[in-house]
Nucleic acid binder design. Sequence first.
DNA 1: ACCTCGACCTGGGCGC
DNA 2: TGCGCCCAGGTCGAGG
Length: 292
Amino acid sequence: MPELPEVETIRRGLERGLPGKRVERAEVRCDRVLLKPDAATFERELQGQSFKAPGRHGKFLILPLERHTLLVHLGMTGQITLRDPDQPDHPFERLPVTGLQRTSQHPVDAHTHIVLHFADGHQLMYRDIRKFGKWRLYRPQELARAPELKRLGPDPFTPAYRLESFQAALKRTRRNVKAALLDQGVVAGVGNIYADEALFRSGIRPTRRGVSLTRAELERLFTAVREVLELGIQNRGTTFSNYRDAEGRSGSNQASLQAYGRYGQECYGCGGELKRSTVGQRTTTWCPRCQH
DNA sequence: ACCTCGACCTGGGCGC
DNA sequence: TGCGCCCAGGTCGAGG
């Protein structure tokens, strides 16, 4: 589900409500391995700690506490909500394609796998239909060596995202450029939606080999990646199905998409028909006339 | 180093 | 109504 803009939108929501919240009890309700260490350790270690301001790198939420830092990856369908006991719960809505989705705060349901009960009565709810999400608890000295973060390339909204290293990473690979963009070690935070958008915006065919890209193309792509992500953040994320922000709202960026999911429709650039194919094992939409 | 495939999961849509 | 198949904002490891 969530790519960088969706995770950033959730982070901003958490920034308003999470800092200072003290965990009175952590409740792990899932049967499967979603978290490390094990559920018992997780529940014991979190107890009594307060959250500080949330951060993000690529698609990872970085949630510092007093004695640990929590890394959260939402996978395809992860949702985080803060629940206020004084506000009414909202029933789930049955939506086409998505199935049962929350619209604002919700009670525990079959897909709610983690509940953090705070001292002030509020709760953090983690809901994840497909259970591809991951929670990892690290001590400060372990965080720098955390494999999840070590694998990540620069986040496009930090100074570490530099044209020179971006170019070098793409020029040295014979993989197609779409696969390279999806590689979180090249740039952290791009997924299937924003990869298609960035390639469309920069006029580059998803099947082009990294090594074949000209300097001008790489410069356009470098900029386009940040632009499409920025637009996604401004629109509070893209919602096709499961994605909701920390308050349960959908994003609106789907209305701004120029390529992703628009196969068979008219290209906004040339009026021709957008094509669909599989590139890097992912469904890809592109314009045969505008992208070279 | 890179590619492809399958695995991990659930649920909705569609065709028969 | 039901079944089987396809699809989905993501990653990971195995094997070639």
